[in-house]
Amino acid sequence: MAYVVTEPCSGCKYTDCVVVCPTDCFREGEQMLYIDPDDCIDCDACRVECPVDAIFYEEEVPEAWQSYIALNREMAAVCPPIVDRKEPLGPRDPTKG
């Protein structure tokens, strides 16, 4: 199992999670980040750093966002790694966490 980036990351792309990841398992897409499930070691460091509560343990992904499990695997295979903090795409939406 692995952690999964879900809907709240779409359009904001905060990188607080990236800089605490000990295995560099994050990948950067155009509108959001993804976690490579083959590199994730389930350490939980990223989940607590996410300012929009977008990261869930795979078994705890809300029903509405189950498709993000496969999406993370798919996109992690084609998106480049990201290991450094970057400016987010937009301001934090207070309705998303």
Rank of each mutant, 00 (worst) to 15 (best):
P8Y: 00
C25E: 02
K96L: 15
P81D: 09
P22R: 14
R92E: 00
L71H: 02
G29F: 11
M1L: 04
M32F: 05
P88Y: 03
C50T: 05
E7D: 12
D84K: 12
P81E: 11
Y34A: 13
C25F: 06
R73P: 01
C25A: 15
E58W: 07
D39Q: 12
A77K: 12
Y3V: 09
Y68H: 12
P94F: 14
P91E: 14
K96I: 13
P8E: 00
E60F: 07
D42G: 14
T15Y: 09
K96W: 11
D44L: 11
I55N: 02
F56Y: 15
R27A: 10
S67P: 01
G29D: 05
V83N: 09
W65H: 11
C17P: 08
I41L: 05
T95V: 09
P62F: 07
E28W: 00
Y14P: 01
R73W: 01
Q66T: 12
K96V: 11
I35Q: 10
C50A: 14
D53K: 13
E74T: 11
C46N: 08
M75L: 10
L33W: 07
K96E: 15
S10D: 12
D24G: 07
S10K: 06
P51M: 10
V5M: 03
V78M: 07
I69A: 06
N72V: 11
D24C: 02
L71I: 12
E7L: 14
A2P: 14
G97H: 03
